[in-house]
Structure formats: C-alpha cells, structure tokens
C-alpha cells in the first residue's frame, strides 16, 4: 500500500524524463543528450577562449606591463632631467650672483674713485682758499701792525710835545719799535 504510494510518487516525480523511478541523475536515457550538448558547449567555449578572449587579455596584460615599464623609465628620465635642470639653474644662479657681486664691487670702486677725486679737488680748493685767507689775514694783520706803529709814534710825539720836550723823530721811532717788540 505504502509502497504503491511511494512508487506512484516517485513515478510522478520522474515522469518528465519518462523513466520509472529514482534520481534523475541515474536516468540513463538522458545521458547521450547531456554529453553531446556538454561537448558542444566545451568546444564552443574552448574555441572562443583560444581564438578570441585569451590572446586578447594576455595581450592587454603584456601591453600594460610594458607600458608600466616604459612609463617608469620615462619618469626616471624626467627625474634625471629635472635634477640636471636644477643643477643648471643653481649654476646660473651662482654665476649671476658672482657677476652681481663683481658689478657691485666695480661700481663701489668707481664711486670711491670719484669720491676720492672730488675730495682731493675739494681739498685742493679748500687749501687754496685757506692760503688766500691766511695771506689776507696776514696782510690785514700787517696793516694793523703798521697802523699801531704809526699811532704809537704820533701818540708818543704828542705826549713828548705836551710834556714840553722836543721830539726827535728818529729816536721816537726807535723807542716805539723797541717797545712794540718787547
């Protein structure tokens, strides 16, 4: 009874494949069909992979690795260039600094020379002026001394006259001179 029920159920389960009972995997009537289609599928996949996909992907991977290597080399080269450029820049900078220093020194020297010349000239002029002034001062002083002598002689004469003496011009002059010297 139960067996019949079970078998009926199994039969119902397996009716699609038309086999009596059991696991569909053990239904030998479907094997040839499955194997044939499996082989077809495998051959198609194999051909597609072999002829199209795998060479393409392999090519892309190889290309990428070569691109990376190339890019790395290029980057290395650029780096070297940058280093060289920096060096050149530094050199130029040092040179320019040197030059600038030289120019400054030269300008300083020129200015110094000009200054020295001007100073010398001024010194000369000042010297000349000083000399002139001294000459004039001496002249004035000499003039003043002469006047002093004159006034002293006159005064001495007057004083002698007033005192009632007779003034001898020569002796007055000598006395005044002696007095002035003393």
């Amino acid at each position: 009874m139960a067996t019949e029920a079970h078998e009926a159920a199994a039969g119902a389960a397996a009716h699609g494949a038309g086999q009596s009972a059991g696991m569909p995997q053990l239904d030998t009537t479907t094997y040839i069909n499955q194997i044939v289609w499996l082989l077809v599928a495998l051959v198609v996949i194999y051909l597609v992979l072999r002829l199209v996909a795998l060479p393409r992907i392999g090519g892309v991977l190889a290309e990428r690795s070569s691109t990376i290597t190339k890019d790395l080399a290029a980057a290395e080269e650029l780096k070297q260039k940058a280093v060289a450029a920096e060096k050149a820049y530094n050199e130029a900078l040092a040179k320019a600094r040197d030059e600038a220093g030289k120019i400054v020194a030269k300008a300083k020297a020129e200015i110094q020379a000009d200054l020295d010349a001007a100073t010398a000239k001024a010194d000369v002029e000042i010297g000349a002026k000083v000399a002139e002034s001294e000459a004039r001062i001496a002249e004035i002083r000499a003039g003043a001394l002469d006047s002093v002598t004159e006034v002293a002689k006159d005064t001495a004469k007057e004083i002698i006259a007033a005192l009632g003496g007779k003034a001898d011009a020569r002796s007055v002059t000598a006395a005044v001179n002696a007095r002035l010297k003393g």
Binding site: G16, A17, P24
Partner: peptide, 20 residues
C-alpha cells in the same frame, strides 16, 4: 530531486513512451 529532471523544451514526454 525534481529540480534535476531533464526535460525537452518543445514537447512533453508522453507517459509510458520511454520505459527502458
């Protein structure tokens, strides 16, 4: 186990026509 049954797409297998 029903999910593993191999079926033709364009026809039904008549009961009793495939009994090895």
């Amino acid at each position: 186990m029903d999910q593993f049954i191999v079926k033709p797409i364009f026809r039904e297998i008549e009961p009793g026509t495939c009994v090895p």
